[in-house]
Computed example of a mutant assay.
Amino acid sequence: MYARSFGSTRVSVPVIGQGTWHIDGSDRADAVRALRAGIDAGMTHIDTAEMYGDAEAIVAEATSDCREEVFLVSKVVPGNATRRGVVRACEASLRRLKTDRLDCYLLHWPGQHPLAETIAGFEDLRRAGKILAWGLSNFDVDDLDQVLAIAGPDRIACNQVLYHLNERAIEHAVLPWCEKHGVAMVGYSPFGSGEFPDPASAGGRVLDGIARAHGTTRYAVALAFLTRLPGTFTIPKTGRPARAIENAAAADLHLGPAELAMIDAHFPRGPRPRMLPML
């Protein structure tokens, strides 16, 4: 499993991880087996959040005997992101996850509370050993600049953003900002939340042709494309063990320049939007 340094943490983390949004909509036993299959295949980066229903409890079950192998991430909703609220929310997540610390803790999206308060809460948790690092999610460049001005360099571990073949807006400014400042860029919903390219479309046929050439799946090709750039990671979600194993194989898939160019041509990034897309 190919891994790279995860932003300011300097921890080596697999480029393909596992998301858990809506995983509680799957059969619980299947969801646990899928997460375990992914861990066994090297996808030890697991992302969850307090707002994901029973996902944290499912992750706790899946990691009950392998916590030390896992790079575990959770998120606080903006409504809880006061200095004290961040601490309370994190402690509640730790109880649900049945662990004593998170490897990284994120603010789920920009909210109404002052960022200085949220960051102070993150730093309180870090000093207490309850989190090892903190980061952000759904932050555009102006918001990232504000956090950097408050926290200083080498504090923001990552920015988690929407990123799939039909939504490449982050490549305009967010990704270059993250590269410049040594912040990991984690793409969520890499299969487009139900908008994955139709096999009958021109783009779908390109993905299928590349997949056949490598003896892999169209989904693995998409994941390999989305992690082609330095500092990028992705966290596909699945409730099926077989799909988890297929996803993991994408980490070792090398796409040549011609293949990358074909994908780029059929799934262009388009113009920069006025607002950062998010789900």
Results as ranks from 00 to 15, higher is better:
Met1Ala: 14
Tyr2Pro: 11
Phe6Gly: 15
Val11Ala: 15
Val13Gly: 11
Val15His: 09
Ile16Gln: 15
Gln18Cys: 02
Thr20Tyr: 01
Asp24Pro: 00
Asp30Met: 04
Asp30Arg: 00
Ala31Val: 00
Arg36Cys: 14
Ala37His: 05
Ile39Gln: 04
Gly42Ala: 05
Asp47Arg: 02
Tyr52Asp: 14
Ala55Phe: 01
Ala55Val: 03
Ala55Leu: 07
Ala57Gln: 10
Ile58Trp: 03
Thr63Glu: 11
Cys66Asn: 13
Arg67His: 11
Val70Phe: 10
Val73Ile: 14
Lys75Phe: 01
Val76Gln: 09
Asn80Gln: 14
Arg83Asn: 08
Arg83Ile: 01
Arg83Lys: 14
Gly85Ala: 06
Arg88Pro: 01
Cys90Trp: 00
Arg96Cys: 07
Lys98Ser: 15
Lys98Ala: 15
Thr99Gly: 08
Arg101Gly: 05
Leu102His: 03
Tyr105Ile: 02
Gln112Gly: 12
His113Met: 00
Pro114Leu: 08
Arg127Lys: 14
Ile131Gln: 06
Ile131Lys: 02
Ile131Phe: 05
Gly135Ala: 07
Phe139Asp: 07
Val141Ala: 09
Asp142Ala: 06
Gln146Met: 13
Leu148Met: 11
Ala149Met: 04
Ala149Pro: 08
Ala151Asp: 11
Pro153Trp: 01
Pro153Met: 03
Ile156Cys: 15
His164Phe: 15
Leu165Asp: 11
Asn166Ala: 15
Glu167His: 07
Ala173Phe: 00
Leu175Asp: 13
Lys180Pro: 01
His181Lys: 04
Gly182His: 00
Ala184Lys: 04
Val186Arg: 12
Tyr188Thr: 01
Tyr188Asn: 05
Pro190Gly: 07
Phe191Asn: 05
Pro199Ile: 02
Ala200Thr: 15
Ser201Gln: 08
Ser201Tyr: 00
Ala202Cys: 03
Arg212Tyr: 00
Ala213Arg: 10
Thr216Tyr: 04
Thr217Met: 13
Thr217Glu: 09
Arg218Asn: 11
Thr234Lys: 04
Thr238Arg: 09
Pro241Asn: 11
Ala242Glu: 11
Ala242Phe: 01
Arg243Asn: 09
Ala248His: 03
Ala250Val: 02
Asp252Met: 06
Pro257Gln: 13
Ala258His: 10
Met262Ile: 04
Ile263Trp: 04
Ala265Cys: 07
Phe267Glu: 11
Pro271Leu: 12
Met278Asp: 09
Leu279Ile: 04
